[in-house]
Design a protein around this nucleic acid. Sequence first.
DNA 1: ACACGTTTTGAAAGCGCATTCACCCTAGAT
DNA 2: ATCTAGGGTGAATGCGCTTTCAAAACGTGT
Lengths: 345, 345
Amino acid sequence: MYDVAERSGVSIATVSRVYRTPESVRAQTRERVLEAARELGYVPSGNARGLASRTTGVLGLCFPDYADPDAEADAEADSDADDAVMLYSDQIIRGMERAARRHGYALLIAASLEGGPESLVAKVAGRVDGFAVLAQTVPTEDLEVISRRLPVVMLAGPREIDHLDHIVVANADGERELTRHLIEDHGLRRLVFVGGDTDSPDAEARFRGFREACRDAGLPVPDEPALRTTMMKQAEGALAAETLLDRGGERPEAMLFANDQMAVGALRALARRGVRVPQDMAVTGFDGIPLGRIVQPSLTTVRQPIRRLGEQAVELLVQRLSDTGREPVSLTLPVSVIRRTSCGC
Amino acid sequence: MYDVAERSGVSIATVSRVYRTPESVRAQTRERVLEAARELGYVPSGNARGLASRTTGVLGLCFPDYADPDAEADAEADSDADDAVMLYSDQIIRGMERAARRHGYALLIAASLEGGPESLVAKVAGRVDGFAVLAQTVPTEDLEVISRRLPVVMLAGPREIDHLDHIVVANADGERELTRHLIEDHGLRRLVFVGGDTDSPDAEARFRGFREACRDAGLPVPDEPALRTTMMKQAEGALAAETLLDRGGERPEAMLFANDQMAVGALRALARRGVRVPQDMAVTGFDGIPLGRIVQPSLTTVRQPIRRLGEQAVELLVQRLSDTGREPVSLTLPVSVIRRTSCGC
DNA sequence: ACACGTTTTGAAAGCGCATTCACCCTAGAT
DNA sequence: ATCTAGGGTGAATGCGCTTTCAAAACGTGT
C-alpha cells in the first residue's frame, strides 16, 4: 500500500479511501491509484484491514471430524456412490455459503480436530465475525470463552450455554406426526421404537415424540425404547430388528427407528427373515438420507431441513451482528414426514 | 492480550509465547496466563496474528456463482433430490477441506459474484495463504494481479496465466478410451459426437479424444462434432438426438455426448421415438453425475475425480508455500470409464 | 562468594491498513 | 479582492500480535 501510494504520488490514506470509499476520491486521483495498484500487483491485506476495522467480513462453521461411518461402508461396495451423496456437513456448508454470500460474507470452514488453544477452532474464532457450531464439536468450556467475544450459534443440539442463539429441528414433532400417521392412517396398534444412546439428544427427542403420539392415541406409553443402540448404524438396526422378532410375545406391527441408517439395516434383516415390509411389518426411519429413496422398499421417514439449518444460522449471526443486544433466540425448524413404501403408503 | 498480560503479571510477549511456543514458557507462568485468559474470555485475534506473522493458516477456494441449472430443474420435480445430490462445487469443497485439514489449514470459500476491487474474490485473496480457482470464475486480469502476490492454482480449465499451477482432468484420454470401447468391444462403426460450444475447453478436449479414437481405429475422422449445443443441458441433448435421428443418410449406431446432462436428455428423447438403447443405439455421456446411475438404461460415461481435484489443489498449494521457487506444474488427473447399460455392456 | 552458561522474561519495533483531524485548494458569494 | 464552504488530501495514531535483542533470573561449579 505504501508502494502504491508512492508510485501514484498520494498518501496511504488516499489509497485506503480508493478501496473503502471510492466516491470520496476525485476520479482522476482514483484512476492513478488503481493504475499503480495494478502495476504493482497490489492485494490489500485482509489481516491489516481486519485489524484496523475490527471486522472481517467472514463467517465461520465448525463441524465434527467424522465422516458418516455407514457412508464409508457403502463406499467400499460402490466407490462412486461416495462422491454422489451429500453428508450432513456438506449440506450445512451449502446452506451457509449461499446465505453468507447473500449478505456479502465469505465462509470459513474447519472440522474440529481437538480442543485446546491451538486447535482449528481457535483459528476460526479469531478470524471471523461470528460462527456456527455443530453440536458436540467444540468443548463447552472453549465455547463459553469464545462466545463472550463474538456471536456463536449452536446447531442441532441442546443449548449448552444459555446466552447462545441456537437452532434445532423439530425432532419430537416429526416423530409424533409420523407415529400418528402409522396409528391413524394405517390402523397400526403394536408399535415399537428403537432408540439410540441416552446421551443423544436427537434420539431422545424422537422417542419423546413417539410417546406423545402413543399417549394421544390412547395406546400404552412405554417408559423406555424397546431397544437402544449405541452408534445407530445399519448393522445395529439389523440386529435390533432380529432381536425384536425373536422376542417372545405378540409380534409388533411397526418398528420405528431413531434414524434412517438403522431402519435401512432393519429392512435388510427383515427381508432375510422373510418378513414382508410393509405387509407384515411397517418400518420407518428419521433424517431423510438419500439411501432411503433408493432402498427397496423405499423408506418412510422424516426429513430434516439441513440446508435450511445452515441458512438460518447465517441469518441469526447477521442479525446479532447488527444488534448485539438482542435476546438469545432458540429456533426450531419444522420437519416433514416423507411417506414412501415402507409404512404401507 | 494486554489485559491478560496485566492480569497474570507478565508482559504481552510472554502471553504470545504461551500460545505460539508453549514449551518456551515456564509451566507455572503458563498456567497463570492461561487462567487469566480463561477468566477474561480472551480469543487471540487472527487478524493481528496474521498481520504480524505474515501468514494466515487459511487456504481459499473461489467457485462460480451458478448452481447446476439442470439440477435446479430436477429439483422442482422432486425437491428433496436437490438436497441429496452433490454439485461440482460441493465435491471440490469436500476434497479441499479434507486435504487442508490434514495440513492444518482451514478453508475459506466464496462464490464469485462479480470482479472489481470489492468483490468476494478480493476478500478471499487478502485473507489466505493461497487459493484455488475454478476456471472461468475470476477475471483473468484480477488473477494476474493476485497471483503475483500469493500462490494460485487453476482448476479444471485452460491455464490462462502461465506461471500458475493448474490441474485438469484427462478429458481427451477419457473420451478416447470410451470411444475405443464402443468400437472395439461393441463393434460399432457409425459413431457421432455431440459437442458443446467452441469456447468450452472441456467439450473440445473430449471431442479431440473422440477423433483420436476414430483415427486409431481407421474410421473416418470428423473435423467437427456432428452437432454442437450451447449450454449442454438435457433439453438440448434431447433435441440433438432427434435432429440426428431425422438427419438423412444411414442412422448412427452410437451417440457420444460431451456431458451426462445431454446424454440423459437424449435417452428420454430416444425412448419417446421408440429407439431402443442400447440395442438400436448406444449412448454415452461424460462427467459421472449421480443421475446417470439412476436413469433407465443406466448411463455409460466417464467419471471425473472431482474430489481428488480439490485434494490435489491443496497439495500443490502447500508445496508451493514451502518452496516458492518451484516451477509451475500442470497436472492431469486420470479419469475412469464407467461401463453401464447404455453402451451395450 | 563469584563467575558463567542457561533458561525466562521484557521492551520495543514493526506488520498493513482505517480513521480522525487538520489543512489546503477551489468555487461561488460578498 | 476577500471571505466562506466543502470537497479532497495528508500526517499521525492505533488496531493486537510476533519477534528480535537484551536483560534478568536461575543453577551450577569453583
